[in-house]
Design a protein around this nucleic acid. Structure first.
Lengths: 351, 351
DNA sequence: TTGCCGGTTTTGAACGATCAACTCGCTGGA
DNA sequence: TCCAGCGAGTTGATCGTTCAAAACCGGCAA
């Protein structure tokens, strides 16, 4: 059929060049620097590119350009998997927006005993130009190492230990919880307690401050009831029960996570009360579990975070300021007081 | 320090060769065909590889070998996201076992309007050698296209339309549900109903057959009560309520998914009954939601499936038979009749 | 005529690895 | 004595692309 594929397997830039009657470099220019090619030549070349369905060989480009146009994303085996799948979702959204930045994403799983080695290895193989960090821990060794070695990266989540860094996107947990408090107050709940993680976790502390500032805004002074629990359902249930004992009627509980909120729901039930009608409950992350339990929850704009992460990574000049995204509140039955038709909620569910 | 990096940036095979006093090809052989290198030379070369922390440049290898040692995995934006994250988990486990097969995984998100184009493009770029399919739909165009173009692939999930294919791993839904039926019978539930998807979905039909065969094994004859619902919580709840009306005391409901099971739990509550003690409920997939709701559920061995997928993909000769994995049952309160500390470890109520 | 200019296109080299063919020294059978 | 055969190691070519520099070319001023 086509003399072009005479060489065998794949269609290369040379096949296109011959078909269009130009040199390989002109084809390359047509694709990468169209302004350097005469208009009619350009059209002819692009027509052949189209016709032959030419796709440049990525490895050859990477080798010559000394750039992979790819970034690494660390995934972890099921062990330290939390309730909810915010990070899975973030990975998916990163992948979706990758082509818009002429890049792709490489998932990799470093050895838990030496995470840095995994990063070093992946980088040295030339498969990636940099990394997208997520789930930034306290005393996280990764930012330090990456900076020392001049490796580009962005982080989903502030780099708490190094406030001078600006290359991150995060969701404003403080604002999210503050919004939840306002919503509860507007819905008529009279007392609003906090069920959070033990202090020391930067994310948890930030969310808690949102709650405290919300109360201040409402004019509440003095000690407000709080309880603490680690990320475990039974423990959260117990903590929530103790919290309930200290709350008056028409109270609500704002929680640092959906798992804690689930514990709160159970505690409310155990007290013979009904979530929503008797006690408001709000969670954080808007996970599947929240949807299934009709739990009002703070929703993170993950897709937007992913897009911004790419911007920061690929066009570092244009977007240099750190970005703090505003979460939204997904309102469901657990924070609605007049639950007509209890058990079947009137709140529309997201898919 | 080291004369090796005189050339500048990265450490190449030539640097290692000079340091070890051999030619580049010998270094290559030492790494790829150690048996072709004399023992003492081998040791000397490997020592230098270690010392200089040499990592071969993946693009260069890929270009020369005409092989990417990478496989594509399709991810989809949040739209058609289902309850549970089996596929996210599968992706993670694939990534974890990738290095064991000297490969890696590339996530990509095809245009939903022309999925095949995404596959063609990804393949043509030379970034991958083949694909891992998951979530094989009915009348799925992908296997057809891949076969026609001689592209290697495995599938997580049988390729239902083409029974002659053998390149897949799957979890035996039939056996999983059968095991659930046995468990329920052994736990003392006297009547076991089925809450499934409308027939026509191969996965759902397979699971349903597991239930039917379980009943047959127990000696149940005649019509047993079933109900159908699409994957939607409210609809599932309604279907389960109708099913409950037709079940006697000490009954149990086996469901085709955790979402359906969640509907069943709500229906049980709406009838003033308690899951587990009064009505057994079993779901499928053992998602976060199941764990949170104390729902007994059929658990898929995802990590094992991922490992086998790599085997089938990378060493096609050694493992040629299709593999059907046995799921396990994660037993929780929703299928335990004597809920001793009721309220604590028992099933939380949905609102 | 010559020289130079700017836009356009082509040619040689290189990215870093592996494949294929070759060299070298040695052994052993005819 | 000769040379086929073998193990160990080397060298040249190559994968497909882009960079850098050179070549081409019509036009226009000197």
């Amino acid at each position: 059929m086509q003399a072009d594929e005479s060489r065998g397997g794949r269609t290369t830039i040379v096949d296109v060049a011959e078909a269009a009657g130009v040199s390989r470099q002109t084809v390359s220019n047509a694709l990468n620097r169209p302004h350097k090619v005469a208009p009619d030549t350009l059209e002819r070349v692009l027509r052949e590119v189209e016709r032959l369905r030419f796709t440049p060989h990525a490895s050859a480009q990477q080798l010559r350009r000394q750039r992979a146009s790819a970034f690494g994303f660390e995934v972890n085996p099921s062990g330290h998997r939390r309730l909810g799948h915010i990070l899975d979702e973030f990975l998916v959204e990163l992948t979706v927006s990758a082509p818009a930045h002429a890049s792709h994403l490489l998932a990799f799983a470093p050895d838990p005993d030496d995470v840095i080695a995994g990063y070093r290895q992946t980088l040295a193989s030339g498969l990636v130009d940099g990394f997208v960090l997520a789930d930034t821990r306290h005393a996280d060794p990764r930012p330090q190492w990456l900076i020392e070695h001049g490796v580009p990266f962005v982080s989903f989540g502030r780099v708490w230990d190094r406030p001078e860094l600006t290359r991150w996107v995060d969701v404003d947990g403080h604002a999210g919880v503050l919004g939840a408090v306002r919503h509860l107050a507007a819905s008529g709940y009279r007392q609003i307690g906090w069920l959070g993680w033990p202090s020391g976790s930067p994310v948890g502390d930030d969310r808690r401050r949102g709650w405290a500032d919300g109360l201040a805004e409402l004019g509440v002074t003095g000690e407000a009831p709080t309880a603490e629990s680690v990320q475990d359902l039974d423990e959260a249930t117990g903590a929530a029960e103790r919290l309930l004992d200290r709350l008056g009627p028409d109270a609500a509980i704002v929680c640092a996570s959906d798992l804690l909120a689930l514990g709160a729901l159970r505690a409310v039930r155990n007290h013979g009360l009904e979530p929503g009608r008797d006690v408001g409950v709000v969670g954080f992350d808007d996970t599947d579990v929240a949807a299934a339990m009709q739990l009002t929850s703070v929703h993170q704009p993950v897709a937007e975070a992913a897009r911004i992460a790419w911007d920061l990574l690929v066009d570092p000049e244009t977007t240099s300021a750190p970005v703090l995204l505003e979460p939204t509140l997904t309102v469901r039955a657990s924070s609605v007081r007049d639950s007509a038709g209890a058990g079947r909620s009137s709140v529309p569910e997201p898919p």
